[in-house]
Simulated scan of single mutants.
Amino acid sequence: MTAQSVDRARLVQALGRRSIVLVGIMGCGKSTVGKRLAHRLGLEFVDADSEIERAANMTVSEIFAEHGEDYFRSGEERVIARLLREGPQVLATGGGAFMSEATRAAITEQGLSIWLKVDLETAMARVRRRATRPLLQNPDPEMTMRKLLAEREPVYARAAMTVRSRDVPHEAVVDQIVLTLADHLLQDVGGAISKTSNS
């Protein structure tokens, strides 16, 4: 089966009111891939960080600087919980969002989580292009990223599905997500069983 042969209307129908929620470390491609995935499936794309900035009338960096990370995380939980009630959509979350137990529970109940798994080198090459990452504003951003990956990957691994975000055209990653979703949500006529959310 190819991504092009997947019945997208059937896929969206199987999704129902749930959102496709992209999780993973900064630089894994949640926003860029998410926009293309939403376009492919005819769904709305929503970026949780942008929604947080709109609600606070401040940038993420400003919220971190003025109020600290705990304040930001608390607002993030509330915004994501609200967004999940507005599905179906493709929702890109911030790198730390899935670390919240409350957010993971809300995503499990009202969404389908996909971990975009990326290696350190690819993530660093991407985040270096943007100097606005609050958690990387220090003398050794690579060490910080290494530490964040070590802390977060075991939690990201609890996502319903995992797709590798490689250094390839974004459309290739979108193809892989579509195939993974089809495998998870649809049953072949041949009787292949779609994966359970514990896969």
Rank of each mutant, 00 (worst) to 15 (best):
L84V: 13
F45S: 12
M58G: 01
L84F: 12
F72N: 04
G75S: 02
T59E: 11
L91T: 14
A92Y: 08
G75T: 00
L41P: 14
S61F: 01
S74Q: 11
D49H: 01
E53I: 03
E69R: 00
A92S: 15
G42R: 09
M58S: 04
E44D: 13
G42C: 12
M58P: 03
E44V: 15
A55T: 13
G75R: 14
A65M: 05
R78Q: 12
A56E: 14
N57D: 15
A92R: 12
L84H: 07
V90S: 10
T59I: 11
V79P: 07
L83I: 08
H67G: 00
I63W: 06
T93H: 11
E53F: 02
E69S: 01
V90H: 02
S61A: 15
I52G: 05
E44K: 15
Q89S: 14
R85S: 15
H67S: 09
F64R: 07
E51T: 07
V90M: 06
I52R: 07
A55W: 07
H67V: 01
A55N: 05
L84R: 10
V90L: 05
G68F: 03
E69L: 04
E86T: 14
L84D: 15
I52Y: 11
G68K: 04
G42D: 11
L91H: 10
A81Q: 14
R78D: 13
I80N: 12
E76D: 04
A55R: 13
D49K: 08
E76H: 03
S50R: 12
E86V: 05
L43C: 12
A81V: 05
F72S: 01
V79F: 02
S50A: 14
F64K: 11
E76L: 03
V46K: 13
A48M: 10
E66G: 06
S61I: 09
T93S: 08
E66H: 11
Y71L: 01
N57A: 13
F45M: 14
R78L: 10
V46R: 15
R54S: 14
L91F: 09
R82C: 08
F45E: 11
I63N: 04
V60E: 10
E44R: 14
E69M: 00
Q89F: 00
Y71T: 03
R54Q: 12
E86A: 15
L41Y: 05
F64N: 08
A48C: 10
D70A: 03
F72T: 01
F64Y: 08
G87P: 07
F72M: 03
E66A: 05
A81N: 13
A56K: 00
S50H: 06
V90P: 04
T59G: 05
S61Y: 05
D70W: 00
D70R: 00
S74T: 13
E51D: 11
E66I: 00
G75I: 02
L91S: 13
E76Q: 04
A65F: 05
V79W: 06
R54L: 12
V60I: 15
E77I: 05
